[in-house]
């Protein structure tokens, strides 16, 4: 594997991190496996694409994707998930139903064609790094992934909300008993996680393009990342994203037809020894 492919793997890993960190936040705190996460990613991508294409501004597209998908997350949590609170399996299966509906709606609105989010001029073209010519946009994705990683770490470890989220992961009842409205913390986390998926959709939409089954693909990658990284661990997700990103690139180069095996093979081996992932603990 040469440096070019290594960078490809790392940038794909960065995108996976953005999407999967939202997934793991929700999974870690609310214990909800949000199978609509892929659909939220795709919705964010499509909404961002339409906004960016009409307004000509990538930034506006990003804002629209984050806002719209954050709202979708709010509606999903308050409108549907509140009725099945506390029943793990019912929650998961309900989000699965939501994923089906969202997907089908996206198919009605945007059709079956594939779209690519327009990249702003400043990020077009390539740049020379480590002696090789590499697309600027992918480096931008990599940088964004790192920034979001740092921001999430700061949020979790340096702010009041972060402290509440961490406390909520460990013992939600105790947090509630000390007079905190844990439901609000849950809701904030859910919206944040959804918004991350939406933002990921826009970013991914610019270099992976958007098409009707893109949601399932990104969902599987996110699942692999979260399963490898462990529930609720941002650092675990960062390591696993990089790992999955690199493995995926390696797989595509060496065994293009069996690329999936190359990701899931190691995942399966890992699980044989650590059923709850690298940095995860049993629920």
């Amino acid at each position: 594997m040469n440096a070019f492919q290594l960078l490809n793997g790392a940038t794909f890993g960065a995108l996976l991190f953005v999407v999967a960190s939202g997934f793991t936040l929700i999974f870690g705190l609310l214990r909800i496996v949000n199978l609509a996460h892929g659909a939220l990613y795709l919705a964010g991508g499509y909404i961002g694409f339409s906004t960016a294409a009409h307004s000509g501004s990538f930034l506006l597209g990003g804002a629209a994707a984050i806002l719209a998908v954050g709202l979708l997350g709010f509606a999903l949590d308050q409108g549907l998930l509140r009725f099945v609170r506390g029943h793990e399996l019912r929650e998961v299966l309900l989000t699965l139903g939501v994923a089906f509906v969202l997907n089908d709606l996206a198919l009605v609105i945007w059709g079956g064609d594939s779209f690519t989010v327009p990249i702003p001029d400043a990020l077009r073209g390539g740049v020379r790094v480590f002696g090789l010519f590499y697309p600027k946009y992918r480096l931008f994705v990599l940088a964004t992934g790192v920034i979001i990683f740092v921001a999430l770490l700061l949020l979790l470890h340096r702010t009041r909300l972060g402290a509440l989220i961490r406390a909520g992961v460990d013992d939600p009842e105790m947090v509630e008993a000390s007079g905190i409205n844990i439901r609000r913390v849950f809701l904030a986390t859910f919206v944040l996680g959804a918004a991350l998926a939406g933002f990921g959709g826009l970013m991914g939409g610019a270099f992976l393009s958007l098409y009707p089954s893109a949601d399932a693909e990104i969902l599987v990658f996110s699942l692999a990342v979260v399963i490898i990284g462990g529930r609720g661990s941002i650092v675990g997700v960062a390591i696993a994203s990089l790992l999955v990103g690199l493995l995926n690139t390696l797989g595509q180069v060496m065994f293009p037809e069996l690329a999936y095996f190359v990701i899931f093979g190691p995942m399966v081996c890992l699980l044989a020894f650590r059923p709850y992932g690298l940095l995860g603990r049993p629920a």
Binding site: R31, V33, L35, E88, L89, V92, A216, V220, L223, A224, V226, I227, P256, E257, L258, A259, Y260, F261, F264, M267, L271, A272, P275, Y276, A283
Partner: peptide, 26 residues
């Protein structure tokens, strides 16, 4: 090895491998 939601997730991911292979192994 797993139960509950983890079992669901794992079986989902495993099933998706099969789907990926059927799609790509033309």
């Amino acid at each position: 090895r797993t139960a509950g939601v983890y079992f669901l997730l794992l079986t989902l991911a495993l099933g998706m491998i099969v789907w990926g292979i059927c799609l790509r192994w033309t």
